[in-house]
């Protein structure tokens, strides 16, 4: 059968979410950011909540989110996403509020805002992109940068003796009573993208059911920052990042499900 006979509206089985604008992502080719941004839109579209959703895009590669979505977005200062989300959610408790934060935003400059929003059990969804590097500013060390990993501000590799250890922050957040759901995903295969979508759906449903804070971490690539091709970056991520940041649920329905003492 000729492809042109197949390519008809009635045969369409996959298209990008209609909640995405036509603007081109600022993300580099093969970057996981685009997949997470798109998957969030798919979940919001499928839940039919686009008229009640407000996204928060703080500084980092996340900052242009408002260019890509066709629903309300508020840009935030670096690290302040969770405070901005709190301010919005408290005056509009029936709206859906999510933040989209990188590792620098969530785990360095915004650790305080993140931890306290989680501790208050703010009824929001936190989407956390962990690629172990500062992408927007050109590849500097992040709190999550692995030991020995090279960046422009640790060009001989992260020396944990002087630069501190990679910060595995989501299990820390999971221990806070206000947090109901913590899960860690990736987007390097279609199957993983589909799993992420289910997790995001759970997170937004938690918000609908007023269960407290939901955190969805995505261990992702930064092929530009890492200096690799997209394929090689994904392979490197599986081999190295997943050892320190293993995928899976960490807390579900308010109960810790990951063994914190398990060897990594």
């Amino acid at each position: 059968m000729d492809p042109k006979d197949i390519i008809k509206p009635e045969n369409l089985v996959y298209r990008k979410s209609r909640l995405m604008s036509d603007n081109t992502f600022n993300f580099c080719p093969g970057c996981g950011h685009g997949l997470v941004v798109r998957t969030i839109a798919e979940v919001i579209e499928e839940m039919g909540i686009e008229h009640d959703v407000i996204g928060i895009s703080p500084v980092g590669c996340s900052v242009f989110l408002y260019d890509f979505y066709k629903f309300d977005v508020v840009e935030a200062a670096h690290g302040r996403a969770c405070a901005v989300a709190t301010g919005i959610k408290r005056v509009q408790p029936d709206k859906f509020v999510f933040t989209y934060q990188g590792d620098g935003d969530l785990a360095a400059i915004g650790t305080g805002e993140t931890m306290h929003a989680c501790n208050r059990g703010e009824n929001i969804v936190i989407v956390f992109i962990n690629n172990g590097i500062y992408g927007m500013t050109g590849g500097q060390m992040a709190p999550t940068t692995l030991e020995g990993m090279k960046t422009t501000t640790c060009p001989r590799g992260r020396d944990v003796k002087t630069m501190g250890y990679p910060l595995n922050i989501t299990p820390l957040l999971a221990q806070l009573d206000g947090v109901c759901y913590v899960t860690r995903h990736s987007v390097h295969t279609p199957a993983n993208v589909r799993k992420l979508k289910k997790a995001l759906r759970t997170a937004f449903e938690n918000q609908r059911d007023k269960k407290g804070t939901s955190i969805v971490e995505v261990v992702s690539n930064c092929n530009s920052g890492w200096g690799m091709s997209p394929k090689a970056a994904n392979e490197w991520m599986v081999e190295n990042m997943f050892k320190k940041y293993p995928l899976g649920d960490i807390k579900v329905d308010g109960k810790l499900v990951m063994d914190m003492n398990a060897p990594r």
Binding site: A77, G87, G112, E113
Partner: peptide, 26 residues
């Protein structure tokens, strides 16, 4: 009227920013 004690002035002003963005008197 919502009254919330933030964890810092930095956080408080960004909560104000959020609520202000939604058109509320904050």
């Amino acid at each position: 009227m919502v009254v919330l004690q933030a964890e810092s002035e930095v956080s408080a002003i960004n909560m104000v920013y959020g609520a202000a963005a939604t058109g509320h008197r904050v």
